[in-house]
Design a protein around this nucleic acid. Structure first.
Length: 351
DNA sequence: AAGTCGTGGCC
DNA sequence: TGGCCAAGACT
């Protein structure tokens, strides 16, 4: 249970947060009487899943400008949301974002409890706790990568992740206060992001340095321990960039589940360990370009060779007109393939 | 319940 | 350069 030592740590963290909280577009300054907007908290938390604050900023700005409310987002077209998400990665988040927005709009607003929040698409254990605490002032305990690291160090916990998760959750719960739980959660995450960092933690300026068991033991930089991940295999593939005489591009909408699900892309082979079969989407004079696209996904490296063809105006298929084509709406690997292929079509690449 | 699922920055 | 890392969720 929470004891006097836990209370002291959480008080120190709150005092530090009151002075050093980062100003972020989705955040209400500590001590403000203004209530945070659940829509903006939810949107930011989903974007921040496994994604850095720096990468999220511009996307958050564009989404909230284009869709200022959850009702507006719920009314958006799927393709527009996917295109706006392009480049941010983990595209299941965008699909679930839209499902969630429509469910919330139907319900007339966001539910306020962690349990109800977690029943919505794309809202799991972390995000449900974060929204409940930050948007609705409920004393829920958030556990993200930052909190895991801070707890492992404060309590010098050497059990490796993910096995240590329940232990670290219990530590984090001990520190969670009944008052200002949202600011407490953000304080621990800010501490992890700016001081208690994975490498070279700035223990000398840490507000809870005196309370940190790993600091005393000298183990802070090596915590939390993690089990090794297997090496990424290499896969090979072919992408076909076909351009019609009127400038339209032959493209495809990828199936709604799996890798890059729901995103726009180039027709291509499967991505396989052995060299893929060369089966172009249309009969034409396909030419293999020199060079290749290299791209690394979560669990494999991809080497993509690119073929190009000029297609007749009579060619049948899904063509994206020249004036509707925007490389920014493509996932990064497809944008790389375009960058390699564009020169062949005498298109100056502004990348 | 491990495997799947992106991307960019860092050293 | 290549592995690690980032406010994880889903199956």
């Amino acid at each position: 249970m929470r004891d006097a030592g836990d209370t002291l740590i959480s008080v120190k963290l709150m005092q530090w947060y009151d002075r050093h909280a980062r100003t972020l577009p989705w955040r209400v300054p500590p001590g403000s009487t203004q209530a945070p907007d659940p829509y903006r908290i939810w949107l930011a938390e989903v974007m921040l899943q496994q994604t850095t604050v720096a990468a999220v900023q511009a996307y958050f700005q564009r989404f909230t400008t284009r869709w200022p409310t959850v009702q507006a987002l719920a009314a958006a077209h799927d393709e527009d949301v996917m295109a706006e998400w392009a480049g941010l990665g983990y595209y299941a988040r965008a699909r679930n974002l839209l499902k969630c927005a429509r469910a919330v709009a139907e319900m007339g607003g966001f539910p306020r409890t962690r349990t109800d929040l977690q029943s919505l698409p794309g809202i799991g254990p972390y995000t449900s706790a974060a929204i409940a605490a930050i948007a609705f002032e409920q004393p829920e305990t958030v556990l993200d990568g930052n909190v895991e690291r801070v707890m492992a160090r404060l309590f010098d916990e050497h059990t490796p992740l993910p096995q240590a998760k329940p232990i670290l959750t219990a530590y984090a719960a001990r520190l969670t206060p009944q008052h200002r739980p949202g600011d407490h959660a953000q304080a621990v995450m800010d501490l992890g992001a700016t001081i208690c960092t994975p490498r070279n933690p700035a223990c000398g300026i840490c507000p809870v340095m005196a309370d940190c068991a790993a600091r005393r033991a000298g183990t802070a930089p090596s915590l939390p321990r993690k089990t090794r991940k297997p090496a990424k295999p290499v896969r090979l593939g072919i992408a076909y960039l076909g351009r019609r005489a009127d400038g339209a591009w032959l493209m495809e909408r990828r199936p709604p589940h799996g890798l890059l699900g729901g995103m726009l892309g180039w027709p291509g082979s499967d991505w396989t360990t052995l060299p893929p079969e060369d089966v172009p989407p249309l009969g034409a004079e396909w030419r293999a370009l020199p060079g290749e696209v290299r791209h690394t996904f979560t669990h494999f490296h991809l080497r993509l060779s690119v073929q190009v063809a000029h297609l007749p105006i009579s060619a049948q298929g899904m063509f994206v007109p020249a004036d509707a084509f925007d490389p920014a709406a493509l996932p990064t690997v497809m944008r790389k393939a375009y960058a390699l292929g564009a020169a062949h079509f005498n298109i100056s690449e502004v990348s």
